[in-house]
């Protein structure tokens, strides 16, 4: 099936893209990697008048290091994030999570920024970004930029802090060098969206967990961070028993969806089991 007609713009700079967004307002839809947008357009679930393709803005692509941060351009493809040694070294959790996204063809086209702004709660990038305490650089009209902390970025189902006329340009990820990481993705068939996903990264010291970060995928309308669990893990040995106790309340306060893959209670149960496994794997146990 073919999308409804639209006009197509392919600006070559962020400024031009923002200008185009301003001009077309509600009529416009931003095309990043397009791997979620194209099916939506094809099924005619959305019919924008103008599509603004960010594919030709080279400043939005690539991974660089800036002091204690990794800076990932919003239009960097999953594939390029996976290929980045800097990401593997300093943000292993992101690498592990992105490796599970969809399939190779999708990872070749799909972009990290596109996924974050699409903000599908079953997507696999939000939880690790949240867990790693990423911040999000957003460009707006007149050359304005602002930086939003991870905790404030995801607002609701398919809704982020990126407002009308704005673009996500960079994801800044604090380096977690030397941290163990694991993304535990639970699916029925491999090409599915996450039923539940757990992003865990752990810094170990002398056989115990010194610091931990835990993000939850598809446990609510946005990715969630389990800060209470993170705190409970501090100082614990990386043993089944200790971690089990520390993560026992991970699903408390969550409100995951119910669908064909499982009801809300089942997802809560999964989250407790999978968090334990993710943390133990991240700790190398």
């Amino acid at each position: 099936m073919i999308p409804a007609t639209f006009d197509y713009l392919a600006p070559t700079s962020v400024a031009d893209a923002i200008a185009a967004l301003e001009e077309h307002g509600d009529e416009a839809k931003v095309l990043a990697g397009g791997q979620s947008l194209l099916p939506i357009l094809r099924m005619r679930l959305n019919a924008p008048g103008v599509v603004i393709d960010l594919g030709k803005i080279s400043e939005l692509q690539g991974v660089t290091e800036d002091g204690d941060d990794l800076v990932i351009g919003a239009m960097t493809t999953y594939f390029d994030v996976l290929a980045s040694d800097a990401v593997s070294t300093h943000a292993a959790l992101l690498n592990k999570a992105i490796a599970t996204v969809a399939d190779p063809q999708i990872r070749h086209r799909g972009t990290i920024g596109g996924a974050l702004v699409h903000a599908d709660p079953a997507g696999d990038v939000g939880a690790p970004a949240l867990a790693l305490g990423a911040s999000f650089v957003i460009a707006g009209p007149g050359g304005a930029t602002r930086t939003v902390a991870a905790d404030d970025f995801f607002e609701d189902l398919f809704q982020t802090a990126v407002g009308e006329g704005e673009l996500l340009t960079q994801i800044r990820v604090p380096k977690h060098t030397g941290w163990g990481a694991h993304y535990e993705k639970f699916v029925r068939v491999s090409h599915q969206w996450s039923i539940v996903g757990i992003a865990a990264t752990v810094r170990s010291e002398g056989g115990a967990i010194a610091e931990a970060r835990v993000g939850l995928t598809n446990m609510g309308s946005t990715p969630l961070r389990a800060k209470a669990v993170e705190e409970a893990l501090v100082g614990q040995p990386a043993t089944d028993e200790a971690v089990r106790a520390a993560v026992a309340q991970v699903a408390d306060g969550t409100n995951p969806p119910s669908d064909l893959n499982g009801d809300s209670d089942y997802r809560k149960h999964l989250a407790t089991v999978l968090t334990r496994r993710a943390v133990l794997a991240a700790a190398g146990a």
Binding site: M43, D53, Q105, H108, H191
Partner: peptide, 27 residues
């Protein structure tokens, strides 16, 4: 398919595989 699941349309774009039903010709 119309949801990019099946991969029957896979081609190479600059040497890497993509699903040709999941991108626009203009891209």
């Amino acid at each position: 398919c119309d949801t990019s699941n099946c991969g029957a349309c896979t081609v190479h774009l600059d040497g890497t595989s993509v699903k040709s039903c999941n991108m626009l010709a203009v891209q």
